[in-house]
Amino acid sequence: MSRDSRLVLAGIIVSLISVIMGSVLLSQSAETLDKVAEHFDVEATSIWNPPIPDYEIPGYEGDVQANIAVGVASTFLVFAATLLVGRGLSRRIRAGAGETSALTEG
């Protein structure tokens, strides 16, 4: 296994530990902004219905295993999305470089 692959593996392990800790031990969220809004009596008005509101599958609220599953799946989603965006941007460089090279050579 290459050093880069080991780094990715280590990052995924750290991510999974974070998800488990965030679902089991450190799941209680009372963010400053929520407290400030509560104090000022302002309520959020959603214009978009997210499929998994507050990281909990509807009907499985408070279920630690379901929350871990959501956390793991969404972490891989972020990983995959970043890979796709990165490869998309990187591909454009190569395509552009190829075009430039072809034009220069032509």
Binding site: D4, L7, V8, G11, I12, V14, S15, L16, S18, V19, M21, G22, S23, L26, S27, Q28, S29, A30, E31, T32, K35, Y55, G71, S74, T75, F76, V78, F79, A80, T82, L83, G86, R87, S90
Partner: peptide, 30 residues
């Protein structure tokens, strides 16, 4: 190309890290 897996790993790591809420002051978490 070599930077892309690192970027994806760090992005996923800090997305996951944002799920951990630790208590701070005044009954709030961060």
């Amino acid at each position: 190309d070599r930077q892309i897996p690192l970027m994806a790993t760090l992005t996923a790591m800090f997305f996951a890290a944002q799920m951990m809420n630790y208590p701070i002051i005044g009954g709030t978490t961060a």
